[in-house]
Amino acid sequence: MVAGAPWVVILVGVAVLTVLLVVAALSFRGPEKLSASAPGPPMVLPVPTAPTNPVGATQEAAPTQEAAPTGSPSAAPTVATTSDAPAPPSGTGSPTAAAGRPPAASPPAPAPSATGTGVLSASYRLQSADEDSFQAELVVRNGTGRPVDWQMDLAFTDEVVGIRASSGPGVTVSIKGGGRYLLSGSRSLAAGAQQTVQLRITRTGGGEYPTRCTVNGAACAVG
Rank of each mutant, 00 (worst) to 15 (best):
A68E: 11
T70R: 13
P63L: 04
A68C: 11
P54V: 01
N53C: 12
P73L: 06
P54T: 06
A67E: 09
A76L: 14
P69T: 06
A62W: 08
V79H: 00
T52D: 06
P48Y: 02
G56K: 07
T49M: 07
G56M: 12
P54W: 02
Q65D: 09
P77A: 01
V55S: 09
P51A: 03
Q59K: 12
P73K: 02
T52Y: 05
A57P: 00
T52N: 07
A50G: 11
A50R: 06
T64G: 13
S72P: 05
T70Y: 14
A67Y: 10
P48R: 01
E66T: 14
N53Q: 15
Q65Y: 07
P77E: 01
T52E: 10
A62S: 10
V55T: 05
P51K: 01
P48V: 05
T49D: 09
V55P: 03
T58Q: 15
T49V: 12
P77I: 00
N53E: 15
A61C: 07
A68G: 12
A68F: 11
S72G: 07
T58A: 15
T78E: 13
A68Q: 13
A75T: 05
A62M: 11
T49S: 11
A68W: 12
P69F: 12
T64V: 10
A57H: 02
T70A: 15
N53D: 15
A67N: 13
T70S: 15
S74I: 12
P69W: 10
T70F: 13
P63T: 03
P73N: 04
P54G: 05
G56Q: 10
P63E: 05
T52P: 02
A75G: 08
Q59V: 05
Q65I: 09
T70M: 14
P48E: 09
S72N: 08
A61T: 01
E66A: 14
P69I: 07
A67F: 12
A67C: 10
G56H: 10
E66N: 15
T64M: 08
P63K: 04
G71Y: 06
T49R: 07
V79M: 04
N53S: 15
A62K: 09
P69S: 11
A76S: 09
T78F: 12
P73A: 04
A76R: 09
A75S: 08
P51I: 00
A50N: 02
A61S: 08
G56I: 05
P73Y: 02
Q59C: 09
V55Q: 05
E66H: 14
T78L: 15
V79D: 01
A76Q: 09
V55N: 05
V79L: 01
P54M: 06
S72D: 13
E66D: 13
G56W: 04
A67W: 11
S72T: 03
Q59L: 14
T52S: 11
S72E: 09
E60L: 10
A67K: 11
T70W: 14
T52Q: 10
S74G: 11
